[in-house]
Write a protein that binds this DNA or RNA. Structure first.
Lengths: 247, 247
DNA sequence: TTTATAGACGAACACTGTTCGTGTCAAGTA
DNA sequence: TACTTGACACGAACAGTGTTCGTCTATAAA
């Protein structure tokens, strides 16, 4: 079951033994291997390219083989999300610095989504409750409760913050997908052409019908995704702070 | 290429002309009809059931026939979103009451998403820029600008609010989809069973590892989707208000 | 050595979005 | 009235999808 892959210092099997005939007698699949492969496909080819067949192909087998280790595509996506969620680092909880730590958590998650953009599409398509999700929930929720926020309100606040983080990442992933579909490789190049497109479109709008949009085209396209993310994050954190008792 | 759509003041064909006899000598497809049918399918059978074939079937034709009026599925989804966005009512702008009016807009959109839950999945899957989207953007953006917010910041605020509204609706739509997949019809019944599932799971968690989650199970599941929506909305609006100059 | 079983896998099913080529009808022109 | 033209409905097909079934085999247990 847990036969190791051939490590480099192992003596290779002589090619004349069991060569030709039954070359790969049995592949050894595992859930971890499948999840890892799925994540690799997701990162390199995007969400739309992630299919059971594609994963199986990368493992040099057929799609049916995966179903012994994974219930289906939905579970695979959840497992991939759990997998990357496990990567994020959480500090020791310090309720006195709840705002700073909550922002730190948000930035950590945001950074993860920048490394694995299409995971956001997997994340929003499911309701994950694996160990990594629980770990994150315990951290964030506990932070607010220990800082003195009423438990019910802390639940609401964390729920909203989580929705924002995933939602923002999802939006980013959509742009990555569009970039990929347009055959571009460089993110900056894509962003530039996208903005240019919007600018020219907004400029062509009838001034009397859309005065504000037409007049402030440059203001509307000034901020990039990162700016937008930080603004929304600050909005939420400040709102939470304003509701924190006896701050 | 730039054939105009039928304007409303055009005289309709009298119903007694070409009546009875050759009832459908030729199916009378049109983009509007396709979009309307797509919306009906979306509402009655859900996002996952919406396929070009399904829409074509509802129109008693084959899938290929749709492509003369619609570029593809993606465009169809955008058109459906635009269609329902056109339904929402916007009041006369009154910058002095910007917060109230912005909340009103949010509630209007929220109500629309409750009527057409799966449209949220179509909305988040695209970057809509049709006339209805522009109308909404002009209203909300103009509201903040006229209320005195710097244009660039108003752009950020509206962008974040929009993301929140669609994101929340998307989450709701996922639950509707799960309900449908479970064969349930009643939303309350589904919500109840879903909460019960979470509660029993959280109760089974190791207390020493997840003390907060395990201890506050009831607090975590107290609020329903509507509560959560309003809390997040208040969070954002308050945050925006705090940034409004000389408020 | 025999048996039992976990799991790899080929083939197939019922779908999907989309394209091509054909056919046919309605309007415009001579 | 006869002819041309062009829009468009549509059958068939292609390449892909997630998933299931049944078989077959290689390893572990007896």
């Amino acid at each position: 079951m847990d036969r190791k892959e051939r490590s480099e210092d192992e003596i290779p099997v002589p090619p004349w033994r069991r060569s030709r005939r039954s070359a790969p007698p049995r592949r050894q699949l595992s859930q971890d291997l499948i999840v890892e492969t799925g994540l690799r496909v997701l990162d390199s080819e995007g969400f739309d390219a992630l299919s059971m067949r594609r994963v199986a192909q990368a493992l040099d087998t057929g799609p049916a083989s995966l179903y012994a280790h994974v219930a289906g595509k939905e579970e695979l996506l959840e497992l991939i999300y759990e997998r990357v969620l496990g990567e994020i680092r959480l500090p020791e909880r310090d309720p006195a610095r709840w705002k700073e730590q909550l922002r730190g958590y948000a930035l950590e998650l945001h950074g993860m989504f920048r490394k694995h953009p299409d995971v956001a599409r997997a994340a929003l398509a499911s309701i994950p409750m694996g160990p990594s999700s629980l770990r994150a929930a315990e951290f964030t929720y506990g932070l607010l409760v220990e800082a003195g926020m009423p438990p019910q309100e802390a639940s609401l606040a964390i729920d909203r913050l989580s929705l924002y983080l995933v939602g923002d990442a999802y939006e980013g992933a959509l742009h990555v997908a569009r970039m990929r579909a347009a055959g571009m490789r460089d993110q900056a190049e894509y962003f530039e052409s996208f903005v240019a497109q919007i600018v020219s479109y907004y400029r062509s709008l009838p001034m009397e019908q859309f005065p504000h949009l037409a007049n402030h085209v440059d203001d509307l396209t000034a901020a990039d995704g990162e700016d937008r993310f930080h603004y929304g994050l600050a909005l939420l954190l400040d709102g939470i702070e304003a509701r924190m008792p006896k701050s």
